[in-house]
Amino acid sequence: MKPPPFSYHRPDSVDEALGLLATLDDPKILAGGQSLMPMMNFRYVMPANLIDINRIDDLSRTENGGETLRIGAMVRQRDLEFSDLVKARCPLLHAALLNVGHVQTRNRGTIGGSLSHLDPAAELPAALMALDATLHVGSKRGTRDVAITDWSMGYMTPNLEMDEMLTAITIPLWPAGHGAGFVEFARRHGDFAMAGTAAMLALSPSGTIERVALAVTGVDIGPVRLHDAEAMLAGQTPSEALFADAAQTAGAVPGLDDVHASKAYRRKLAIVMTKRALAQALAQAQGGGDD
């Protein structure tokens, strides 16, 4: 299980990286390496050219835009986990991060790597889907923005052309006082989710649901937004029965069979996870927003 031969490139700037992407034969971007390197060790992936973007400082910045948060593609998951800004303004992302792999992999793994690898059971794409994130993509041909809903093009296939690279993610922030919940079911702590739900709730002064966002991971080939559930919840007074009803719609997500679980089981889990994520989000919203 040794990686196959490749040529190694270590650009110092985004521009240089994009230039290499445009010109090199069979290139692959090396970000945190926590998914790509195992696949190379197994020789499932054998790129001719490896472009290591770990030295590009521009990709490792997190910027507070007031109403938005812009996160560079190479920001390490562990740095985001430690970020007071993320914790305070985007508690969903913080909660999701705690479920991503293990400390040792989060130390290296990046937010952009997770999105570009796009494992069906990954936590971050679902969290970002609930957050309505926009993904910034660059190439020598120019830049373009992709809505998170348009990111997954199929099984482990992000919306990226061969010469393109994810450079940053922008998250529109919800007002302070909202509640977030991220609940997943995995056989062991740190495993990819067999089903997981990201939930955000904002309550009106009268206690009704003013705004809600729900996305599930681990069930289908990519993250799935639960629009029907959101519609059922909007404007209503939260209750256990309401959450249980709304969560039922998670059972309609298409679903994937694999060695870990059948799609039927995954759908059942999605319902339970959605119910629990909503309860967690509500508790946080009622507790004043911060954890």
């Binding site: 390496g33 926590q34 390197m37 060790n41 040792q104 992999t105 130390n107």
Partner: peptide, 16 residues
């Protein structure tokens, strides 16, 4: 430990 943080040395290239 890489710069004080744990990392998998099987998933890190020496050049990194």
């Amino acid at each position: 430990l890489m710069n004080g943080r744990t990392a998998r040395s099987c998933l890190t290239l020496a050049v990194q």
